[in-house]
Simulated scan of single mutants.
Amino acid sequence: MAIIIDVIKNGPDQLTNMQWDVLLDKGLLPDLYVECDSCEDTILWSEMYRAIFRARDHYCPFCRYLENKENTRLLD
């Protein structure tokens, strides 16, 4: 699990060959997850790329929606 968190926070370029072996063998299973930084709910693997690399907020879709809604309200 620590390897997955390292990949999420620091990117995959920092992994050693041994860490890659562990990640590919044990880490890419559907029952492993990362928690939302806001509500601590689990972020599904299908949403992980968006939360980490696109939005860079580490939020689940619901918390991202609430954050965007609040930001939009502040601009009005």
Score class of each variant (00 low, 15 high):
residue 1 M to D: 05
residue 2 A to E: 14
residue 3 I to P: 01
residue 4 I to P: 00
residue 4 I to Y: 02
residue 4 I to R: 07
residue 6 D to N: 15
residue 6 D to L: 11
residue 7 V to F: 04
residue 8 I to S: 09
residue 9 K to R: 15
residue 9 K to S: 07
residue 9 K to A: 06
residue 9 K to N: 12
residue 10 N to G: 00
residue 12 P to I: 13
residue 12 P to L: 13
residue 12 P to N: 12
residue 12 P to W: 12
residue 13 D to S: 15
residue 13 D to W: 05
residue 15 L to P: 12
residue 15 L to C: 12
residue 17 N to F: 03
residue 17 N to A: 06
residue 20 W to Y: 13
residue 20 W to L: 10
residue 20 W to I: 09
residue 21 D to P: 07
residue 23 L to H: 09
residue 23 L to M: 13
residue 24 L to R: 10
residue 24 L to Q: 07
residue 26 K to Y: 15
residue 26 K to N: 14
residue 27 G to H: 07
residue 27 G to Y: 10
residue 27 G to N: 06
residue 28 L to H: 02
residue 29 L to W: 07
residue 30 P to G: 04
residue 31 D to P: 00
residue 32 L to H: 12
residue 33 Y to V: 08
residue 33 Y to S: 08
residue 34 V to K: 00
residue 34 V to P: 00
residue 35 E to A: 12
residue 36 C to W: 10
residue 36 C to S: 10
residue 36 C to G: 11
residue 36 C to N: 06
residue 37 D to S: 14
residue 39 C to M: 06
residue 39 C to H: 06
residue 39 C to K: 09
residue 41 D to A: 11
residue 44 L to N: 15
residue 44 L to M: 12
residue 45 W to G: 04
residue 45 W to V: 06
residue 48 M to T: 05
residue 49 Y to R: 05
residue 49 Y to Q: 04
residue 51 A to T: 13
residue 51 A to K: 03
residue 52 I to A: 15
residue 53 F to P: 00
residue 53 F to W: 08
residue 53 F to L: 05
residue 54 R to A: 06
residue 55 A to D: 11
residue 56 R to H: 03
residue 56 R to F: 02
residue 56 R to C: 08
residue 58 H to Q: 09
residue 58 H to I: 08
residue 59 Y to S: 06
residue 59 Y to N: 05
residue 60 C to A: 02
residue 61 P to A: 05
residue 62 F to C: 02
residue 63 C to T: 02
residue 64 R to I: 01
residue 64 R to A: 07
residue 64 R to F: 01
residue 64 R to T: 03
residue 65 Y to N: 05
residue 65 Y to L: 04
residue 66 L to G: 01
residue 67 E to C: 00
residue 67 E to P: 00
residue 67 E to Q: 02
residue 68 N to M: 08
residue 69 K to T: 05
residue 69 K to A: 03
residue 71 N to K: 15
residue 72 T to S: 01
residue 72 T to Y: 01
residue 74 L to C: 02
residue 75 L to D: 09
residue 75 L to S: 08
residue 75 L to K: 14
residue 76 D to E: 15
